[in-house]
Design a protein around this nucleic acid. Sequence first.
RNA 1: GCCCCCAUCGUCUAGAGGCCUAGGACACCGCCCUUUCACGGCGGCGACGCGGAUUCGAAUUCCGCUGGGGGUACCA
Length: 523
Amino acid sequence: MSRPSSRPASRPFLRQGRRSPRSWTSFAKNAPGASKLRQSLKPSAVRARFAPSPTGYLHVGGVRTALFNWLFARHNGGVFVLRVEDTDVARSKPEYAAAILSGLRWLGLDWDEGPQRGGPHAPYFQSQRLHIYREAARALEAAGCAYECFCPSDAFAGETACDCASLSPRDKGNRLRSGAAPALKFRVDTRRDVAVEDVIRGTVVFPAGSIHDFVLCKSGGDPLYNFAAVVDDNAMAISHVIRGDEHLANTPRQLLVYEALGLPPPIFAHIPIILSEQRRKLSKRDGATFLDEYEKLGYLPEALLNFLGLLGWSPGGDRELLTVAEMIAEFRLADVVKHPAIFDVRKLGWMNKEYLKAAPLAEIAARVEKLLPEDVRRRYGAGRIAAVTGLLRPRVQNLAEIVSQGWYFFTDKPVTPIPEAIAKYCAGPEPLQRLRELREQLARLKTFSEESVETEIRSLAERAGTKAAAYIHPLRVALTGQAVSPGIFEVCAILGREQVLERIDALIGALSGALRATVRMVP
RNA sequence: GCCCCCAUCGUCUAGAGGCCUAGGACACCGCCCUUUCACGGCGGCGACGCGGAUUCGAAUUCCGCUGGGGGUACCA
């Protein structure tokens, strides 16, 4: 039980955020552990948070972290806090912050406290809370837990410690007067092991000497992550810190800061990170890694949430398709796995397809509409868009594919068949002949519908003593320019008689020209 | 280098000593359905990293190794 000896920072302001009596400590190797506290914690006391840094767009890894925090908070009837960690002035940008917020909104991960919503612990941008860190920094320095360091920022590549800690007041004064702006460093007791109690990992001990003095505030005074996060998690009364595994190694440092400040640490849960197919931490170069890319490609938020939820967490058994409500009901930190997961886009694609098939057509069509250019939307209208969506949806994994695959439904220009389609279905004189018959009969149809076209083609084939395919394939080439498409009768119905005849004529023209050329060459 | 984490099919995972000749899903491969593609149906391929130890019995516990990952920033 090595209770922190000094209580330098029992400053009132630092104590505001205390949420429970300090009944345990996680600094000693034989600490009682988080589990006991977890059990005694009332669900209503749960306050989880997502604390993204707006130095880039929202990453699928970040989304997963946000999701786990959100699920945890919702499952426990707790509070989900959103805090923007924009202390790195050089790299943070407002547009990134805005994109992160709108991304979370799109997903439906609503926050109870945070930007645009406020809350009892506002502001929720760290850049607006600098005075709070400054005060905490002063407290630490006054208590001898931190010291000013005058070394140039790039001075320490390795382990060598600087000797600024033992600078005489006079030297310090001189440097200060000469305009040097010191960083604030935390003094680490290298003789002591530091143990982290983690809900997912158990007790993790960082041996004495493996942690060195680290920077709390840069020269200039801006706080760094390991400092600001501690101050805010406490100030915002965060009960559970659920974050990526890459932060596990930071945790002992943060624990030390909690201790020096005289604050009770939250419960930690480090979730495994998401790796790219190259088994590396997901980065920009690994294809679509940012949330907005998935939105643009037409993935459904529910599908993304379901997929990400199952990356590193499982409700047990065979469950694959889970609604958000089901995930909330079943989510427990104890069921989060320890090992990293590889992001498999193919499975996401399958899952998105499942959601696409299950959703009401009108909803899906409305989303497709948003992906189409304004003029196309106006020209063809919601009716055709919905019909095309219905036809293509079982064949695609995302909505963008409906647009790219169904392009021939949205153009008045002649369709130029791809060479493979011509070679496969339009070689020789027969297809041309079939097209001519088709053209004649379809023009005569009293009503032009899926059923009437089908009936006509089938009887045409029967009369000619051939298979319907003999008509269907050339027709497909004429209408779509492709060798594959949805059912051709349905395609006809959507295009309408006028466009169908136009395209048949066009192909007849092209084929007869080509045939003449071939014949001329033969002799 | 040092510190830490992790280890079941190609991928996501189920599995918490006998229920496991290891289950499901994605992917892949067949077959069926069919005008093509897709959907759907049926079937198949495919894993407990290695070595010790504990035990009557280990995917499940312990140790070592190997492998992978993360951290070691005046980034988060």
